[in-house]
Design a protein around this nucleic acid. Structure first.
Length: 442
DNA sequence: TCTGGGGTCCTAGGACCC
DNA sequence: TCTGGGGTCCTAGGACCC
């Protein structure tokens, strides 16, 4: 039996923990750059604000309803997520952290010890709420996909009180009939259109399609697995997270710019900033990457711009896997030169580190390497240099040592994202801790 | 005026290996 | 005129997820 626990309106719930005045009001959290709505309180959903809506389209409505819009505060959400996952991990044999606000639970064999699974799920919800302030829903079923279905319905129908268990044929059928096919995990916009065109409306209809049809229309073997999971046949196991964190195969840093950029130097300024961040993150995990991808995007919303909107290029690092910022910057600049076209304006750029390897795998040497590239001696020097940079940045602030290319001549760099309504990092920055004053009666 | 960021998995052709 | 079988890796792109 799998469980799926998921935080309700997670980002909004995190904000409400520290700002009770947000309770009962329409609240939205915006994406980086204050662009789109990425989390909505129930009150915001009720007045018709759609997920992903551009902020400029809903601003009027929100003001009129005396609601709040907040910039996203990822350090806060990440920290609260960690606390939620730790509470859950304490109460089940194994947990797979699936995203910042979701985890699959291993519930196998628990009934033997705990009696009712529903009672255990209720206890977990109470515990997470009491310890972190985050409300959750729990779905339980024999496959991950059905656990997602159960979770979805538990959220949709308040009378279920946040819990739904699908462990009999009749319950499964009732649930699948109640869920639109488009809401099934793994059915996105494209596939939803295909299903509509074929008269497939509910998850129950979807569970009835044949193997050939599923493989042909729903992305090959992935689609067929989805169908089997809906039928109760598990195709995916639990992939336990080590110490409650995600183990990753790739790592990315990308941002939309605060304004469109039209020069190579500005785009490189932004990109080198992101590369330094990505490399630092990689070192924090103790890993190395052997694939480097750079991409730049033009505006999809500008009618003068023709597709493709994104250009990307990938390099297998000739010296083998690395986490050396300077080496990555040197290769990254060459990759940007490959795809950058002058005379265009760019709105976003990013870097992806792929092919992640744990440290200590041994350095792959390049027989024809030029001086200055990978060699055991250089590798040792680079390691010391990176450790020093990380230590300095930890002690004196994040940007104390950074690539010269990321230092803008003016005040704020032109690529700097907007975040006009960011709340404090209540739980991760000492200066931002709330102060509680106690008034004593004399 | 203003439209996110960070992930996963799969496919498929071509180069190259023995 | 005739030209293998079984692999891996690289690269790009497309779908999905929260």
């Amino acid at each position: 039996m799998f469980g799926l626990v998921d935080g309700n309106n997670f980002y909004v719930s995190c904000e409400r923990v520290f700002q009770p005045r947000l309770n009962g009001r329409p609240v939205v959290v915006l994406s980086n750059n204050d662009g789109n709505v990425v989390s909505r309180s129930p009150e915001a959903k009720q007045i018709g604000i759609a997920m992903g809506a551009p902020y400029f389209e809903i601003r009027g409505l929100l003001q009129q309803q005396r609601g709040y819009a907040l910039s996203s505060n990822y350090p806060l959400y990440g920290d609260i997520s960690r606390r939620v996952m730790a509470r859950l991990a304490d109460q089940v044999p194994a947990i797979e952290v699936y995203s910042i606000d979701e985890a699959f639970l291993d519930l196998h064999g628990l009934t033997k010890w705990l009696g009712s699974l529903d009672a255990h799920a209720r206890r977990m919800r109470r515990d997470v709420l009491a310890c972190t302030g985050i409300p959750t829903c729990v779905g339980m079923a024999t496959t991950k996909t059905l656990a997602k279905v159960a979770n979805r319905l538990a959220k949709k129908y308040p009378e279920l009180e946040g819990i739904l268990r699908l462990d009999t044929e009749s319950r499964r059928e009732r649930a699948l009939r109640a869920l639109p096919a488009a809401d099934v995990w793994g059915i996105g916009r494209q596939y939803a259109q295909v299903l509509t065109a074929h008269g497939i409306r509910t998850a129950w209809d979807l569970a009835g399609v044949g193997e050939t049809w599923a493989r042909k229309n729903l992305g090959g073997v992935v689609g067929w697995r989805l169908i089997q999971e809906l039928r109760g046949q598990p195709c995916q196991g639990l992939q336990p997270s080590e110490d409650g964190t995600l183990s990753r195969q790739s790592l990315r840093c990308s941002r939309s710019f605060g304004q469109p950029l039209t020069t190579f130097d500005d785009v490189w300024g932004a990109l080198s900033t992101y590369m330094a961040k990505a490399a630092e993150k990689l070192r924090t995990q103790g890993g190395q990457a052997h694939l480097l991808t750079v991409f730049i995007c033009k505006s999809q919303y500008d009618s003068r711009v023709r597709p493709p909107y994104t250009r990307s290029t990938t390099l297998t690092l000739p010296g083998g896997a690395t986490s050396d910022t300077l080496l990555l910057l040197a290769y990254g600049r060459r990759l940007l030169e490959r795809i950058y076209e002058s005379g265009h304006s760019y709105v976003k750029a990013g870097v992806v580190l792929d092919g992640l390897e744990p440290p200590g795998r041994g350095l792959q040497l390049d027989l024809f390497a030029a001086a200055g590239s990978a060699s055991p001696a250089n590798d040792a020097k680079s390691k010391v240099l990176m450790q020093t940079i990380d230590a300095v940045n930890k002690q004196f602030g994040r940007n104390s040592v950074r690539p010269a290319s990321s230092v803008a001549s003016g005040n704020a760099p032109p690529w700097q994202s907007k975040a006009l309504w960011r709340t404090p990092a209540y739980t991760t920055r000492l200066e931002d801790l709330l102060v509680v004053r106690v008034l004593l009666n004399k």
